[in-house]
């Protein structure tokens, strides 16, 4: 099934980055407002699926040469690692820590271990969803 979707392909090239940046925004917004790793991850997945629709699997794999299984693994490790950090301080599992730092450019910002956990969730969602889509689309 080879169609020549000039309009779709051209828009996708622009829209992909907009969706991707928006997903990053949503991911960071999850700090205090609605958003977070899962939603951000789903948005990124949506962007990649749009690429898959506009182009084909091979082109996308060439453009994004990640192993998505490894990505899932890294995400799970990040999430588990953040949660398990509590073990070394002998406080209950999943206990999070945060503090306020003054960073250049951002000014005073609160940094939170829960964000690392969320980054893990982000990677797991993207990794597993794309793995599933690849395994369906792989042999058609």
């Amino acid at each position: 099934m080879k169609t020549n979707d000039v309009i779709l392909q051209t828009t996708t090239k622009v829209v992909f980055f907009i969706i991707f940046l928006f997903s990053i925004h949503i991911f960071f917004a999850g700090h205090y407002t609605p958003g977070g790793g899962f939603v951000g991850g789903l948005l990124t997945t949506g962007a990649i699926v749009l690429l898959l629709l506009a182009f084909d699997l091979k082109t996308v794999q060439k453009a994004l040469p990640f192993n998505f299984t490894i990505m899932t693994g890294i995400g799970l490790l990040l999430a588990l690692g953040t949660a398990a950090g509590a073990i070394f301080f002998n406080v209950p599992f999943f206990t999070h820590a945060f503090d306020y730092f003054t960073l250049p450019l951002f000014g005073e910002t609160s940094l939170h271990t829960a964000m690392v956990f969320d980054a893990g969730v982000f990677l797991v969602v993207v990794g597993s969803a794309i793995t599933i889509i690849q395994s369906i689309g792989g042999d058609s």
């Binding site: 899932t72 490790l77 073990i87 599992f93």
Partner: peptide, 23 residues
């Protein structure tokens, strides 16, 4: 060791993740 009871859950989980890297 307040988290001791979680170890039988976490350890298999950790190794399951590690195995993903050695497909």
């Amino acid at each position: 060791m307040i988290n001791l009871l979680l170890f039988p859950i976490i350890i298999p989980f950790l190794f399951a993740i590690l195995l993903l890297f050695f497909k």
